[in-house]
Amino acid sequence: MLSSIGEIGLNHYLILSAALFCIGMFGVLMRKNALVILMSIELMLNAVNISFVAFSRYQNNLDGFVMVFFVMAVAAAEAAVGLALAVAIFKRFREINIRFFEHLKG
């Protein structure tokens, strides 16, 4: 996996990205606080950004950078809407734990 400790290659960045993605996924699965779930999603998006930038840098191709821009803009938009929703939910239920607003559960 780590072919040589002294030199850093593309695979190191990709494994870091995978680890970060899995940590984010773990957070989405485990946590019950809507805000922390949103944060974990941001972590996953950032993991993807790392792999985009690493690929782009090692392949000498700028398309990855453009993709990072799009991911960042979408992530910022997602955070804005998510936080607005969280504020609306908190106003109504006085609670942000997702166990407390499962009204739509069959």
Partner: peptide
Amino acid sequence: IFSMIAGALSMSFSELGSGD
């Protein structure tokens, strides 16, 4: 999932990796 991704990476990058 992490070990699957890491394993796949280490298999496909055995030669490429740090040379680039």
